[in-house]
């Protein structure tokens, strides 16, 4: 796929003063800044946890630690796939990179779906809203901000995946641009439909309707999901040489730094927000 394999030193960039690639250094600086963002949010949560106003909800009765542990595990495993994607591209293996990127996207989406389910469950079943207690305010703001980070990461991964189809023949540039926007839109629609289907399916099984009941209530969502997945499969077939290879490894690596960081932040949030309530 790639015209040049194994020719780039991925650990030393001879064009910079320090040998660190500019993009990597930039990402490190950003992550330093992001540390302070989450530091301020987590502090806010912990301070209010120490000063609960009368009538504050009991967090351990609201949380479903099994679900959150599951989604935590999935998010951590996505980091493994992310690392594999970086490794593949550093060796110039574009197909393997794509597979690993898709895997990371998939795991990231599972995490997000769990969060959507968790939020709607808390609001509708447990009565914990953004505004009816300080705990609700800090909890939703903190975990929601983290969820936004994951969502931005997923969008970035999707864009990188689409970017990997850019044809090497520059004359196809215009067609590719249109195709990649189509690709992005199909991706977005499929993700939303698939998430809705999953939540519908879970709901159907919880209420005892089973798969038949799900199909009865959500025929359109399910059809869109299937159609979207098929379209994605077609769009994801690659013909000919692409302008994506080892030279882009630094882009994927910077994205990976961001992804791993967001995972690490989740470990802190999982400990400080969830596990702490069970002490």
């Amino acid at each position: 796929m790639s015209s040049h394999a194994g020719t780039i030193d991925h650990h030393h960039d001879h064009t910079t003063s320090t040998g660190i690639p500019n993009k990597k250094l930039f990402m490190w600086a950003f992550l330093a800044s992001d540390c302070m963002f989450f530091g301020a949010l987590i502090s806010s949560h912990l301070i209010y946890r120490l000063h609960p106003p009368p009538g504050s909800p009991d967090a351990s009765k609201i949380f479903s630690i099994e679900l959150t542990s599951f989604s935590t595990f999935i998010l951590l495993m996505s980091s493994l796939l992310m690392a594999l994607a970086v490794n593949s591209l550093q060796k110039g293996q574009v197909k393997s990179t794509r597979r690993n990127l898709l895997g990371t996207i998939f795991f990231g989406l599972i995490f997000l779906a769990c969060q959507v389910y968790e939020f709607s469950h808390f609001v509708h079943e447990q009565g914990l809203t953004l505004s009816n207690s300080v705990f609700g305010s800090t909890f939703y703001t903190l975990t929601g901000t983290h969820g936004c980070h994951v969502a931005i990461g997923v969008l970035w991964l999707v864009l990188m995946y689409i970017r990997s189809f850019k044809p090497a023949d520059a004359d196809e540039g215009r067609a590719w641009l249109l195709k990649s926007f189509l690709h992005l839109i199909v991706f977005g629609v499929t993700v939303v439909a698939a998430m809705a289907s999953m939540l519908g399916l879970v709901h159907a099984y919880q209420t005892g309707d089973g798969f038949g009941g799900f199909l009865h209530h959500h025929p359109l969502t399910f059809a869109v999901t299937l159609a979207g997945l098929t379209a994605l499969w077609f769009l994801g077939r690659s013909k000919g040489q692409v302008d994506f290879g080892e030279a882009n490894a630094i882009d994927v690596e910077s994205m990976g730094l961001y992804w791993h960081f967001v995972d690490i932040v989740w470990i802190v949030i999982f400990t400080a927000v969830y596990l702490l309530e069970y002490l």
Binding site: F30, D34, M36, F37, G39, S44, S133, S137
Partner: peptide, 23 residues
């Protein structure tokens, strides 16, 4: 890069208070 996040989060919390009724 290390100090602006603190005010940004303070402003986000204030914005949440004013726009979405947090506390």
């Amino acid at each position: 890069i290390l100090s602006f996040p603190a005010i940004t989060i303070a402003l986000v919390e204030l914005m949440m208070d004013r726009s979405f009724g947090t506390n």
